[in-house]
Amino acid sequence: MVELFVNMGQICSLKTEGILTTVGLGSCVGVALYDSAAKVGVMGHIFLPKSRANDPDALPGKYADTGIPAMIEEAVRLGAQKSRLQAKLAGGANLFPNLNVNSVSIGEQNVVAVMEHLAKYQIPISGKDVKGSHGRKMRFFVENGVVTVTAIGKEPIEI
C-alpha cells in the first residue's frame, strides 16, 4: 500500500486507499481532512499560523491561513464534497516550555489558527491530540479515515 510522507509546508492527498504520514510534528500542526463517502483524504503539515508578505513563494500549506483553504480545494478536486469534510489534528506542542513561560507558544498559536480557519469553512473537528511538550508522528489511513498518533517510546493512539 502506498504511504506518502508529508513534509513541513506540504499538502498531500490520496483517494480510496493508502496512508498519509507526517513524522516529527513538534510545534507544527498536522491536519487530516476526510470525506468518508468519497474516501478522499488530504493531509497538511502547517508550520506557522499566518502567511507573510516577505515569503511570497511559500507553499500554501506552510501557513494555516493559506493552508486550510488549499487543502479544501485539493479535497474537492479529488471528488470530495465540502459539506462532508471532517478534520483531525495532531501536534502544536511546545518542546521548550521553559523558554516562553510568559507568552503563547508557536505550537498553541498554530492550533488556534488551524481551528479558526476550519471553523470559518464550517469543517467539524472529529478528533485531536494537540499541545503538550512532546513530538508526534501522525498516520492517516485513507481507506477508513482512521488517524493514529505516536509519541517516542509510546504505542500509537487512535484519535
Binding site: 513524522v23 516529527g24 510534528l25 513538534g26 510545534s27 507544527c28 508550520f47 506542542a93 511546545n94 513530538g135
Partner: peptide, 16 residues
C-alpha cells in the same frame, strides 16, 4: 531549553 524527541519535531520547533 532541552528537548529529547524526534529529530523532525525538535527541528521544526527550533525553526518556528
Amino acid at each position: 531549553g532541552v528537548a529529547v524527541d524526534m529529530a523532525g519535531a525538535v527541528w521544526e520547533s527550533v525553526l518556528a
